[in-house]
């Protein structure tokens, strides 16, 4: 009986390996293939800036797990508190996502001639991390895309740049803010973003 179980387990393990390898390849390809699309969009100097932003947002929204990202930027007790008032959770997600998109898409002009090297995809617990390097004239910057399997497939829930996690950084800020403020205060703060104007000359 033990031998049968051992053989069964061995077979299961052998079968599981290719499945995982296939998933790793699949997720890596998501990054690898579409970085070229990104480069094409951003490097297109003839495309209207607003049109370009809109295209990028429309492309991002279905596949970037912004909702999970927004909610895990709050610690557990704040997530629960957020849900005590009907509609407030979705409001938080909407405000957070809009802030992220506005904040980063407006910096699109900072792109010059960077290229991306896509490295290996690694299984980390239940998730998959894809390591890439942004290569510019000042050297390489490591970027890790953290994918999580959801009902919609593999979606990114966090990005890590040179070891700095977007989610972690926001978690710390929100936790610090909520020590002395309410969720409503946080929503107001998130809506108030334009305290500084970008200088005219953004390129260095």
């Amino acid at each position: 009986m033990k031998q049968i179980i051992a053989v069964f387990l061995s077979c299961a393990l052998l079968l599981a390996q290719p499945v995982m390898a296939d998933e790793l390849t699949k997720v890596r390809n998501i990054v690898d293939k579409n970085v070229k699309i990104f480069i094409g969009y951003v490097a297109d100097k003839n495309m209207d800036k607003e049109v370009k932003k809109q295209k990028l947002i429309e492309t991002i929204e279905p596949f970037f797990d912004f909702q999970t990202m927004a909610l895990i930027c709050l610690v557990k007790k704040h997530r629960k508190e957020l849900s005590k008032v009907k509609g407030r959770r979705q409001e938080f997600v909407d405000v957070f996502v809009k802030r992220l998109q506005d904040s980063y898409l407006e910096k699109m002009d900072l792109y010059t001639d960077e290229t991306v090297e896509v490295g290996e995809a690694k299984k980390v617990k239940k998730n998959i991390h894809v390591v890439t390097n942004l290569v510019g004239k000042d050297g390489k910057i490591e970027i890790i895309y953290k994918f999580r399997k959801t009902k919609k497939g593999w979606l990114v829930y966090d990005l890590e740049i040179l070891g700095v996690s977007i989610v972690q950084t926001y978690r710390s800020q929100f936790a610090s803010f909520l020590k002395n403020n309410t969720i409503e205060d946080l929503l107001v703060s998130l809506k108030t973003t334009d305290t500084f104007k970008m200088p005219e000359d953004k390129k260095q």
Binding site: V31, V42, Y104, I143, L159
Partner: peptide, 18 residues
């Protein structure tokens, strides 16, 4: 530099999907 390129990452990821 890290925070400057955050926007690139978001776009990369989005474009990396579809």
């Amino acid at each position: 530099t890290v925070f400057l390129i955050f926007f690139l990452l978001l776009i990369f990821t989005g474009c990396s999907q579809h």
